[in-house]
Nucleic acid binder design. Sequence first.
DNA 1: CTGTTAGCGCGTTCAA
DNA 2: TTGAACGCGCTAACAG
Lengths: 353, 353
Amino acid sequence: MENKIYTIKDIAQMAGVSAGTVDRVLHDRGDVSKSTKEKVQKVLKEINYQPNMFAIGLAAKKKYTIICLIPFCNEDDYWHSVSCGIERAASELRPFNVIINFIKYTHADHTSYEKACLELKETSADAVLIAPNFREETLTIAEHLKRQHIPFIFIDFNVEGANPLKYIGQNSYMSGYIAAKILMRDYKDGQEVVFFLANNKNNPAEIQMQRRMDGFMKYISDFFSDVPIREIILNKTEDCVDKESLDTFFENHPKAKLGIVFNSRVYLVGNHLLNSKWKMDALVGYDLLQRNVDLLKSGQVKYLIGQRPALQGYRGVKALCEHVIFKRTVNAVKYMPIDVLMKENIDFYFEFE
Amino acid sequence: MENKIYTIKDIAQMAGVSAGTVDRVLHDRGDVSKSTKEKVQKVLKEINYQPNMFAIGLAAKKKYTIICLIPFCNEDDYWHSVSCGIERAASELRPFNVIINFIKYTHADHTSYEKACLELKETSADAVLIAPNFREETLTIAEHLKRQHIPFIFIDFNVEGANPLKYIGQNSYMSGYIAAKILMRDYKDGQEVVFFLANNKNNPAEIQMQRRMDGFMKYISDFFSDVPIREIILNKTEDCVDKESLDTFFENHPKAKLGIVFNSRVYLVGNHLLNSKWKMDALVGYDLLQRNVDLLKSGQVKYLIGQRPALQGYRGVKALCEHVIFKRTVNAVKYMPIDVLMKENIDFYFEFE
DNA sequence: CTGTTAGCGCGTTCAA
DNA sequence: TTGAACGCGCTAACAG
C-alpha cells in the first residue's frame, strides 16, 4: 500500500536531521547523540527503509570477493563442469564488482583438503562456496565462517550440522531410488544385480554413494526383495580397471546382467564390456562425463543420471550474491532435478545454457 | 589478462571525444558523425567494455516497455507457464526501469489474434516478445516492427520469413523424432501406432504439430517402416472427448497399442483409458500440464516431452533487454532441450528455478 | 553534430 | 556532535 521508496534524504527530513546523520545511525559509526539517534531510528522503523542497492554498489566502490573451495579437475570431469558454471556466473557478476577466486584441493585427499581449509581461513572473503569433502574439517571451517559472519553455501553434497546458508545438490537417496527403478525395468526372471563399487573406503564421497545405495536398496526391498545383489570392487588404478577381476566375476556370475555404478566411473565397466565378450542387459551410472556419454551412445551404458554440476556452481555463486549484495532471502535447500539420460535424448540435453 | 575495468570516461579519453558522445554511440541515439562513431566503436571493441550495472541502475531514468503478445491462459496450461517465466524476468528487471505489459489473445482464434496485433501496432514499445499464431498477421506485424526498429523475439514456434531478433523454442522435428524413439521402444510384433490428432485444422499450432509428425515419421520410416499408422481425430469439446468415437476406434483396432498425441492434450486420451476397459502399452504426449503429469504418475501416460515454456518466456524477455538496454549481441536461435519425463523422474523435475 | 552539466542515492570526507 | 559537499559511473537534457 505504502509504495513510496524512501531515500536517506527523505528520512533526514522526516527526522529533522541531515543525511549524514542518518547514515551514521544506519551504520552504527558513533558520534551521534542518543536523542537524535532515537529520532532517526523511530523514522526508520516506521517506513521500513530499503536502501537502494545500486547506489550502495556505486558509491561504496565496493568489490565483493567470493571464494570457491572445490576440487581440482581435469578436462572431462565432474568438477570441470562445476567450474564452468562458476565461471559463467563470474562473467555475469563482474559488472557488479564481484570477483571470484578459487581455492582448489585434491578430491578425497585429507591433507590437501585440510590445507585448502586453512588457506580459506586466512583469506578474506565476502562469501564462500564450498564443495565439502571431509566432515571434520568442513565443520571446523563452517564454524569459523559463521563466527566471521561470512555466508557460505554447500554444493554437491551436504554435511549435516554445518548449517550452510543453502545447500544445492541432488537428493542422493532419491536418485538412488530412481536408478533402481530404471535399472529394474529391464529385469528378467533369475537375473542378478551387480554393484560396481569403489575401492577407496575413506573417500568422503563414499557417504554420498552410500545414500544412493540406500535409496537403491529401498526400491529393491520394496519391489524385488528376492533378487540377489552381487558386489565387486573396481580396483581402479590410473583410470583403468583390473580386467582380470572383472572377468573372473562375470565368469562366476553368469546371471549378473543388471549393473549399477554409484559414482562417475561407469565408463570403467562400460569400456570393459566393449572390449570383452561379456554383455549386460542394463548398466546404469552417474554423471555425463564424455566417456560416459560415448558409452551411452554406443549402447554399453543404458542410462546415465545427471545432476547438473554446472548449474550447481552457477546457482551457488548467484545465490551468494543475492544474499550478500542484494540482501534477498535465499532458500535453504535447492535440489537439482534427477535427469535421466538415454541414447535417445542425450544429444539434445543441456543442463544449462 | 587485461582486467582493468573501463568507464565511459576512459573510453571518451581513448577515443578523443567526450563522455556524452560515447553514451550516444552506446545507445544508438543518433546525432553522431560517422567518423567519430567509428572511432568510438573501435575502442569499444578493443577493450570489451562492460558497463557498471550499479551506475546504470542508479541513473536509469528511461523507462523501457516490453510488450508480450501471448495467448490467454488458464491455471493448468502451457501458456500459464510461459507467463510465469515472463513474470520472473519482470521482477528481476524492475530495478532497471523495465516495465512488462501483456497483450493477450485467444489461441487459434483468428479474429482475436488480428485484434491483438492491431493493438500492438498502436502501442509504443521498446521491444516485443511474440508467441506467434497465424502466419499472415505475424508477417505483417513483423514488417511493421522492423520498420519501427522495434526488436522482437519469437517463442514457442518460429514463423519462416519473419526474421525475429531471436527464436526460442524446441526443434519440433527432432522432438517428434525422439517421441518416436521412446514410443517404439515398447513395440512388440504386430502392434500398430495411433496418432491422436486435433480437429482444428486451421489452428496455426497445426504447423508445429506437423513438424513433430514429420520427425516422428522420419524415425518410423527409418526403423519401423512396416508398422501401420492409424489416425483418429479427437473431437474435443470442452476438454472432454467424444468417448464413443474412441471406443469405436479401439474396438476396430485391437492392435493399436502405441499412442502419440502431438499437442498438450494427451490427458484426453489418458483419462479415457483410465475410465474405460481399453489399455495401451505406451502413450506419449507433450507438455507438463498437471493433468498430464497426473496421468504420467498413474501410468496411463508413459512419457511426456517437456519443452520448458517458462524458460522460454524468461529467456525471451531477458534477451530483449540484453539487446535493447545493454546492447549485447544475442544469438538468433536457442533451442530448448527435449526433456523426457517419466513416472520415475517427474517428481524431481523443474524446468526453471 | 558535439561537449558540458546536473542529477540518480549513498558513503565519505571535511568543516563547523 | 552535526551538516554540507563531493564523487562513484552513467543517462539525458541543454548549450553551443
